[in-house]
Simulated assay, not measured.
Amino acid sequence: MRAILFLVLIAAFHAHAVAQPSKSRAAAIAQNYPAIPESIQRRPVTIWSDGTRMAGDLYLPADMAPEAKLPAIVFIAGTGGTKKGTPARMASVFVQNGYAFLAFDYRGWGESDSKLQMLEDMPEPNENGDVTVKARAISWQMDFADQVEDIRNAIAFVSGSPNVDNERIGVLGTSYGGGLATWIAANDSRVRCAAVQVPGMGGGRGPAAERRGLNLQTKQARGEIEPVPYETGAPRGKMSSYAHMRYNTAKSIGYDVIKAAEKITIPMLIIDAENEELIDRTKNGEWVAGILESNGTPVKYHVLKGIQHYGVYKKKFDEAASMEVEWFNQFLKSAQ
């Protein structure tokens, strides 16, 4: 693919995404939202994550009292997911059941700005710290380290909302985002309840995968290969439909959801698909459910019958969403 370059004046944290492999930012902006009832309001919000602007949508009841404090759900997207897709559909379900709901695009995904990779030596900054550089937008990266930071900042944003009870924040993750949500459930004390559906948790990666990540990091650090995947790193095989995405396994070193699950103490719902074709659920959701159960952590593991991975967004959407609302009602909404 041809590198798309641009000149940018950047001061401290002003980094705007303008280019993405095979899938433009303009296409994400042009995507339509699903219709929502008049009883629900959607507020576009800006979330800062390590100096980069993320685009978000905060959903609230339209007739909410100014002093109201609602429990909040932060949605964590899966591979290639954006705030206008699955979370925009889920938002109505949750808001109608008395929740605030936050959806956002990771840095470099959807409508969010990207980090920048300079493609030439940096000139001396002027008196304001500004430099003019030739740079590339770092977009559509499968980057565990950055996305954990993005999720933490989304939680921080919603916890500061005047209409959110920051003692009642939950996370809801799907697919790739289900693994991220599980890691966050283990490591962020602000999260009081979690639910994940068809989660990819990286079960079974093992030492060989760790070595590959370390070897990749060595080559990136030494400039022997692309420092950030652009021409390389596209998903293949069962995930080839996400050709605009880029894996950077060097950024997943030390990211072990299965080990993280040992630390989870908050209630967690795990929903899997009976005919899951993308992952081995016995080494992902089912495995984590067993860990939580053995540790005495409140957990429910449910398998949706008769569907494959993507059936949770279609045929079984209502069933899954209903179970998730019920779970959060029990363990988050009623929490004091």
Results as ranks from 00 to 15, higher is better:
Pro21Ala: 00
Val45Gln: 04
Val74Lys: 03
Gln41His: 10
Tyr99Ser: 00
Val74Glu: 01
Leu60Phe: 11
Ala62Ile: 08
Asp63Tyr: 03
Gln96Thr: 11
Met64Trp: 06
Thr86Gly: 00
Ala77Thr: 09
Phe13Cys: 14
Lys69Tyr: 06
Phe101Asp: 00
Gly51Ala: 01
Ile29Lys: 12
Leu102Gly: 06
Ala19Leu: 00
Tyr33Val: 02
Ile36Met: 14
Glu67Met: 09
Tyr59Trp: 11
Ala26Asp: 13
Val18His: 12
Pro66Gln: 07
Ala26Ser: 13
Ala11Arg: 14
Phe94Cys: 01
Thr82Glu: 07
Val93Phe: 11
Ser22Thr: 08
Gly51Lys: 00
Pro71Asp: 01
Lys23Ile: 07
Val74Gln: 02
Pro87Glu: 08
Ser22Leu: 15
Ala65Gln: 15
Ala17His: 04
Pro87Ala: 05
Lys23Trp: 15
Gln41Trp: 08
Gly56Val: 02
Arg53Tyr: 06
Val95Thr: 12
Gln31Tyr: 11
Phe94Val: 04
Lys83Arg: 15
Pro34Gln: 07
Gln41Val: 14
Ile76His: 01
Pro71Gln: 03
Ala15Met: 13
Ala19Arg: 00
Ala27Pro: 02
Thr46Lys: 09
Asp57Cys: 09
Leu58Ala: 07
Glu38Pro: 14
Thr46Gly: 05
Pro61Lys: 02
Ser49Leu: 02
Ser39Ile: 08
Ala55Phe: 06
Ala65Arg: 15
Ser92Gln: 15
Ala35Cys: 09
Gly85Glu: 15
Ala30Ser: 13
Gln96Pro: 04
Ala77Tyr: 03
Arg53Pro: 02
Lys83Asn: 04
Ile76Gly: 00
Asp50Phe: 02
Val18Glu: 13
Leu102Arg: 06
Ala35Thr: 14
Ser49Ile: 04
Ile76Tyr: 01
Gly51Val: 02
Leu58Gly: 05
Tyr59Arg: 04
Gln31Cys: 09
Asn97Phe: 11
Ala28Asn: 13
Lys83Asp: 01
Val18Cys: 03
Ala35Ile: 10
Ala35Gly: 11
Pro66Ser: 10
Thr82Arg: 06
Lys84Tyr: 04
Ala77Gly: 10
Glu67Pro: 04
